[in-house]
Design a protein around this nucleic acid. Sequence first.
DNA 1: CTTGCCTATGCAACTCGTTGCATAGCAGGA
DNA 2: TCCTGCTATGCAACGAGTTGCATAGGCAAG
Lengths: 195, 195
Amino acid sequence: MALEHAILVSLLERPGSGYELARRFDRSIGRFWTATHQQIYRVLRRMEADGWVRAEEVAQDGRPDKKVYSAAPPGREALAGWLREPVEPETVRHELAVRIRAAAFDDPAALIPEVERHREGHAALLARYLHGERRDFPEAYAPDAAGPGRSAVDALDAQRRLQHVVLRGGIEYERMTLAWLDDVLATLRELADGR
Amino acid sequence: MALEHAILVSLLERPGSGYELARRFDRSIGRFWTATHQQIYRVLRRMEADGWVRAEEVAQDGRPDKKVYSAAPPGREALAGWLREPVEPETVRHELAVRIRAAAFDDPAALIPEVERHREGHAALLARYLHGERRDFPEAYAPDAAGPGRSAVDALDAQRRLQHVVLRGGIEYERMTLAWLDDVLATLRELADGR
DNA sequence: CTTGCCTATGCAACTCGTTGCATAGCAGGA
DNA sequence: TCCTGCTATGCAACGAGTTGCATAGGCAAG
């Protein structure tokens, strides 16, 4: 189980309440790890009991009180230990691939609209990623502007660079997926015509 | 839930026992849908109760009896209906991405061996995919050999072409992942040097 | 000849994750 | 004014998926 660790990373990047975490999981983090608010609240309580995070009650006016969580030293240690564990092979659930093979036993043309919808979603996501990259990592678009140098890497820089390399992964994934979906659409259309 | 549908596709491609299905899910199908034998047996029983599949007891000598399942017409219909439903957005669980962002709060160098191991796994998988493609779809390597023509597409041909397009997706995914992992490794090594 | 592995199915207990619902005050629009 | 939606947390029930174990015969290696 890695939800604990995903939450820890998010809290190390910035402390926040369960509600805020849930929204983060709907946005940036949710692109590689999804979770509902229910699960987040439950796991946060367990993590607090284990001493991985500390909670601070914050009264607010005009809205309900909230508990702001932040990562505690035992949580940091647990994260460091987890980093040294072997990566377990990810369980894949690629529904679209199942559907494509299923289309052979029905009308392949019936799948075309769904694949097109899917394609639009990926195109929109790629656009959002690229927009976010321009906003958050502008230096990547103007390299050698201040000379590369061999400067020491501070902690914040490491954080940014690693966030960027993960984002680049998302971008390349979306590009690849778009190209593949075009391949899928071409195949489905050929099959539909050939009947 | 799509396990039922994945099983149906597999049984339409070829009937088999629960045990055989479990092994198929460890190999080809398991690349985009994983399942344990427990789950497969349970779902098969439910599918049989629903009339989606039919079971035939087959006595064997030298080994236990087995129940060979095959897809029944109601199962085909259910599959056709499912194909017309909207594709639900896939829940992503990309553990390595979480670890990479986590590395910012620990020693980035500690992650390098794990990423290298991961990379080897993907390289091996890509090699297997390419080998399988050469074996199962040799015509893709000698196009226009017999002239393309405009021949009608029969059911078996549709099945093969759709299997091939899914395989091409796997190949492109692995290629992209390898390139990204090299990017990740370069980033981690830079960070490790800069300390 | 014993140990371990393969075929083949299954029960029981567990964890993980989702869904529906509840509370409760405040803000903004029809 | 009522309805919708946002912030913020949580309970209860369910379904999906995993893990450990059991059975039971055959086969091959040490």
